[in-house]
């Protein structure tokens, strides 16, 4: 019986790594711009005005949220690509790669549930009372925001492993890992959102929307970029691909990673 090790499927790995940018670009366009959540409707908005908002933007919100429910799954596939890169650093017995993948997967749950609630609000707007719309709007925000600890575990696991990378040039630079810790620190005050409808700690306020969310967003963008590069570097390390050659004027070509 043959016991040969299966070959690493770099193409699938790269494809999964590219779902990171699909997630952050798609979410920004569909959730932020199309569904008019940039910035979101304030927590202090009256029930009647919330109802009117959903009535006026019914189609945009329905399209935006249904696309987001599909695109949100890209966070899970991106997390799988990150996890495989982590495994190359911590070895097959490492647990943090599992924590990262679970964190990314479970982060998709509040995203899909919250988007589903906002979608239903728009879909059923003619049958819902203003108070019901307001309640559903709050409900979705509480779910999507207060699940931050799951994402925090994902980010902490990735940061710890990438900081332990012994390579001279780490697969993911140390600043991205430290930015991960900044992201986690910025999440904790989000726990205050149930208590305030105005001010910096409301869900549309300075801290939650303009600090915690963008900080996470910067982490996703930077991690995506370096994971895509890391997969190519691992492919070269494994000898499955050659370094690209950069022509140098008046000299021999330089190999790059």
């Amino acid at each position: 019986m043959s016991t040969s090790t299966p070959k690493t499927d770099y193409s699938t790995w790269k494809l999964l790594a590219w779902t990171g940018p699909v997630f952050f670009i798609g979410f920004f366009v569909m959730w932020g711009l199309l569904a008019d959540n940039f910035p979101p409707m304030a927590a202090s908005t009256t029930a009647q005005d919330m109802w009117q908002h959903y009535k006026d933007l019914q189609t945009e919100i329905m399209v935006g949220m249904s696309v987001c429910m599909v695109l949100g799954s890209c966070y899970m596939t991106f997390g799988a690509a990150v996890s495989r890169v982590m495994r190359r650093i911590e070895g097959p017995e490492g647990m943090l790669a599992n924590v990262e993948m679970m964190g990314a997967t479970i982060t998709y749950c509040p995203i899909v549930v919250a988007c589903g609630i906002w979608l239903t609000c728009a879909l059923q707007i003619d049958r819902l009372s203003p108070d019901m719309v307001q309640t559903m709007y709050y409900l979705a925000w509480m779910i999507i925001d207060l699940a931050y600890m799951v994402t925090s575990w994902q980010i902490i696991a990735a940061a710890v492993v990438f900081l332990r990378d012994k390579r001279e040039k780490k697969l993911v630079p140390a600043w991205v890992s430290w930015w991960g810790f900044v992201t986690v620190a910025s999440f904790f005050p989000v726990s205050l959102i149930p208590f305030f409808k105005t001010g910096p700690f409301a869900f549309h306020g300075m801290f939650n929307f303009w600090i915690a969310f963008p900080t996470w967003y910067v982490w996703i963008v930077s991690m995506s970029i370096f994971i895509i590069k890391a997969v190519s570097r691992i492919e070269i390390e494994d000898g499955a691909a050659q370094p690209k050659e950069v022509p140098v004027r008046g000299g021999a070509p330089l190999a790059t990673r």
Binding site: A174, W178, F181, V182, A185, G199, F207
Partner: peptide
């Protein structure tokens, strides 16, 4: 220390600085 801890410290202090400005405006 390492550069990373200074990234963390700088970002954390920016968060607090924004809250201090928010306090003064309030």
């Amino acid at each position: 220390g390492v550069e990373g801890v200074w990234v963390f410290v700088a970002a954390d202090m920016v968060f607090f600085a924004l809250l201090f400005v928010s306090f003064m405006l309030g």
